[in-house]
Design a protein around this nucleic acid. Structure first.
Lengths: 200, 200
DNA sequence: TCCGCTAACTAAACAATGTATAGATTACGC
DNA sequence: GCGTAATCTATACATTGTTTAGTTAGCGGA
């Protein structure tokens, strides 16, 4: 029998590493971080629990590689939004950052969950430093007064804080809600943009 | 034998609920959130694993009650710092908020970890809404231009984002470090204050 | 003072998890 | 073709949260 049975799955998967990551990404988006376990990934790919361990070393490293994907997606989103935007530098940056967080909330959360992933994993370190460098670059293309470093910290903090609080539902609970003009994702991205104009 | 043996621990603890919470708070601060398990709390209090369940219902509820303590501590800190501060309203608020996060990093993290605690737990709901109401109050005592609601969202977002990024060590990695004037907790609290003066 | 009720707690068990170990299978370079 | 290394399975272990059934003791009322 040298003609392979199309029903029988091969002993070697062929691209198991990617398949596991794809399954993990889908489970993260649809079922949440807690659903992403070694055994669930193995089940989704139809392999034994030890197979993902072989490719990633541990769950912490698997999640780190997954978060690296997230930082890549963030960079793609920032570059896309900022290239075709009439807005300027740091102000548009805040809107794009918040828009990404709202469009991929669980991935955004994972990217900062250093308790559950291995923050020193090589792919993650590379993807994260690239993304943060890009953030710093965009925040400094704007013309403005004062220390450029302070402006960068302010932009990033404002964007990160607003995104985080929005994902927790706290801003809607405390200040928004039906009839307040803060309902859709677009409202919040616009809010982020507006915040950059509020004077201290 | 009606005189109790001082060596023998009684079957009934007397104040087990508080003892469990105290143990959990200590373990959280010293060993991290992952060390706070039902079984570890039970071991620390010298009881069986089912005893904490009886008092709290589940680990998610135990952590929620613990987070409620955290919100109480935040309120105490805000009130203390803002009463004896020459600074005004929302600007001092940001500094005090960041100072709290840096002084109790793991508690601050837990307070927003709605995946691991029960966000609808009664004590937590009460303590959180009280704390957030106080935040809103302080942010609006300042005189300033523009929409008061926007100013409140901006203050809170800036404080929360800066605190979160500082705890992740990202700002130090990206922008601070030795020789940059950003090293101690006080430097960062001052940074938070300064950020409120940066113009958009 | 004793009785009964109820809260507080124990003991034991279950399913699920991460991961280590040893072995089986297959691809691939020489 | 053959040996080696990569890939994957089977099995096992310790740990976790939680459930169930049963034990102990504090406490109010007769």
């Amino acid at each position: 029998m040298d003609h392979p049975d199309p029903q029988a799955k091969p002993y070697h998967h062929g691209d198991l590493r990617r398949a596991i990551l794809d399954a993990a990404e889908r489970m993260l988006a649809e079922e949440g971080l807690e659903a992403v376990t070694i055994r669930a990934c193995a089940r989704a790919a139809g392999v034994s629990p030890a197979a993902p361990i072989h490719h990633f070393g541990s769950l912490r490293d698997l999640l780190a590689v997954l978060a690296a994907r997230g930082f890549g997606q963030l960079v793609a989103r920032l570059d896309a939004d900022l290239s075709q935007s009439g807005h300027q530098g740091d102000r548009a940056l805040v809107g794009a950052y918040v828009a990404f967080a709202l469009s991929a909330p669980r991935m955004f959360d994972l990217m900062w969950r250093e308790d559950v992933l291995n923050p020193a994993q090589a792919e993650l370190v590379a993807a994260r430093s690239l993304a943060l460098g890009r953030l710093q670059f965009h925040s400094q293309t704007a013309i403005g007064e004062g220390d450029a470093r302070l402006r960068a910290i302010r932009s990033w903090s404002l964007a990160h804080g607003l995104a985080t609080l929005l994902l927790h539902g706290r801003i809607v609970t405390a200040l928004g809600g039906p009839g307040t003009g803060l309902e859709t994702k677009e409202d919040f991205a616009a809010l982020a943009y507006d915040l950059m104009f509020v004077r201290g």
